[in-house]
Design a protein around this nucleic acid. Structure first.
Length: 472
RNA sequence: GGCGGGGUAGCCAAGUGGUAAGGCACGGCUCUGCAAAAGCUGCAUUCGUCGGUUCGAUUCCGACCCUCGCCUCCA
């Protein structure tokens, strides 16, 4: 059963086949955060999605090299650095650290490489020189360097691979930025921006004078450095399709580093936006939640991760607090099922039950249809619960079910409690007291004790085998 | 204006040319001292509207309505 993925280039679902002739190595690049502010969970939808892609590829047996850049120099950052009066690195370091903490809270596997733009100025300059040498770029009088879409086209390049633009319809922005007045054509974009007074201390030397890189060039330079001039998968949010990814293709293919007949990127995957009240979650609209906002409200990283992984990545997903509450309930059901399976399985070990693996894999292989995968999982939960309730589940079957769960969860990355936490002595004592009260038929006192336990964060569950404690 | 997504039960969300996954919520039941918790179970003759193709359409085609995104920094 092969993996099929939608490719923004072809606008169709295609069989996934890696560039590697051995069919083993996969290069995956995902546009990462701009560290000028806290990331919100709309941003994290994309990163959780990238994590899902990476994990599923690994589940399928591929050896993935996962790269995610950190944009630590760009217009907004420079503006804030100036306002804060801090050195660039001091300003961005905090946001970068916070970003990776958030990613970890969402149980995203760390990418193998997380290059910073500021650490690759040399590579960007080299790439720009290559573009100049090939006549794809031109120097402006002020020392900026621009990419020429006209020259690129004249050289056989196709501009508009992702967005299917007609050149005449490329509408210039409402205002031409003051530092881009020198462009030959409105659609051309900056590779290198000459230093201006407002940049303060943020500039680097270059063959064209002091300045800083344009936005798009970093991804071309760093992805090709780490993954080669042609690689398999490039992901990002759908808002990056144009102009960022289109320009990345133009720069990277314009430099002509690819082998004959090879593209810069084989598959482009774009994650749809997270919505709030039907509108894109964004800083400018102010309708965003950061991970920290939600953690402060008492939601956990796993609940948020589950929530972000509920809908298909190409569909906009409506994010609500009610939805998070639903995620909590759904996960509690899953936890309960797994806990009971562990009780039945005991120390028994067994290979994974293939039934769940099959339906789960079918779902994800179909363009990462995570909704279908969850459907398979909850169908499985119901079946497990039925046999658990009937008492017909043998320890070996329970162990096989658990082993299957472990495999699918390596893809989903939903942390589950491995065992019931032991309650502290104080709680145990209260529980014992309550049992005594119950045996003495002093139910009023038993209920008081139960409420006391609840207030301390423990639920009492009376079962035929005696009371059980559950956190929260 | 150009380009591209959507409109499926109270909410979220899959899906298919042959008669609607899953989750949450809600109702019923089991268990229980009562509960709680948990489990089981029920819950869309219907898929934005109107036409068309078809033996048959939610799924294909056309028109229309509504909505979102990109075209400017943006996950």
């Amino acid at each position: 059963m092969g993996l099929r993925l939608f490719n923004t280039l072809s606008r169709a679902v295609q069989d996934f086949a890696p560039l590697d002739p051995a069919g083993k190595q996969v290069g995956l690049y995902c546009c990462g955060p701009t560290v000028h502010d806290s990331a919100h969970i709309g941003n994290f939808r994309t990163f959780v999605f990238a994590d899902l892609v990476r994990r599923h590829l690994e589940f399928k047996g591929y050896a993935v090299t996962h790269v995610m850049n950190v944009t630590d120099v760009e217009d907004k950052i420079i503006a804030r650095v100036r306002a804060a009066g801090l050195p660039l690195g001091d300003y961005t370091a905090g946001y970068e650290t916070a970003f990776f903490e958030d990613a970890r809270a969402l149980n995203c596997l760390p990418p193998h490489h997380t290059p910073r733009a500021t650490g690759h100025i040399g590579e960007m300059i080299a790439l720009i020189e290559q573009l100049l040498a090939r006549g794809m770029a031109y120097r402006a009088p002020d020392g900026s360097v621009y990419f020429s879409i006209e020259k690129y086209r004249a050289g056989g390049g196709r501009y508009g691979q992702l967005v299917h633009l007609k050149s005449e319809e490329l509408r210039p922005g409402e205002r031409v930025r003051h530092d881009e007045y020198a462009k030959e054509s409105a659609a051309d974009f900056a590779l290198w921006k000459a230093r201006v007074a407002e940049d303060g201390a943020v500039f680097w030397p270059s063959p064209w004078g002091e300045g800083r890189p344009g936005w798009h060039i970093e991804c071309s330079a760093m992805s090709m450095k780490l993954l080669g001039p042609s690689f398999d998968l490039h992901l990002g949010g759908e808002d990056l399709i144009f102009p960022h990814h289109e320009d990345e293709i133009a720069q990277s293919e314009g430099a002509g580093l690819q082998a004959a007949g090879q593209r810069f990127v084989r598959h482009w995957l774009h994650c749809a936006h997270l919505l709030v009240d039907g509108k894109k979650m964004s800083k400018s609209l102010g309708n965003f939640f950061t991970l920290r906002d939600l953690l402060a409200k008492g939601y956990s990283g796993r609940e948020i991760r589950y929530s972000l992984l509920q809908a298909h990545y190409r569909e906009p997903f409506n994010f609500t607090l009610d939805g998070l509450d639903g995620a909590r309930s759904a996960l509690a059901r899953l936890d309960e099922c797994l806990t009971r399976l562990r009780e039945v399985a005991g120390d028994t070990t067994e290979g994974p039950d293939p039934a769940l693996l099959r339906t789960f894999t079918e779902g994800l292989d179909d363009d990462l249809n995570v909704s279908a995968a969850w459907g398979a999982i909850f169908e499985w939960v119901r079946q497990v619960n039925r046999s658990l309730a009937a008492g017909t589940l043998a320890p070996r079957s329970a162990a096989a079910a658990l082993a299957a769960w472990e495999e699918v969860n390596a893809v989903l990355g939903i942390e589950t409690a491995t065992s019931r936490q032991a309650a502290p002595a104080e709680i145990q004592n209260l529980l014992t007291e309550r049992e005594s009260a119950r045996r003495a038929k002093d139910f009023k006192r038993a209920d008081l004790l139960r409420n006391a336990l609840k207030a301390k964060g423990w639920l009492v569950e009376d079962t035929p085998k005696g009371p059980k404690l559950k956190p929260r």
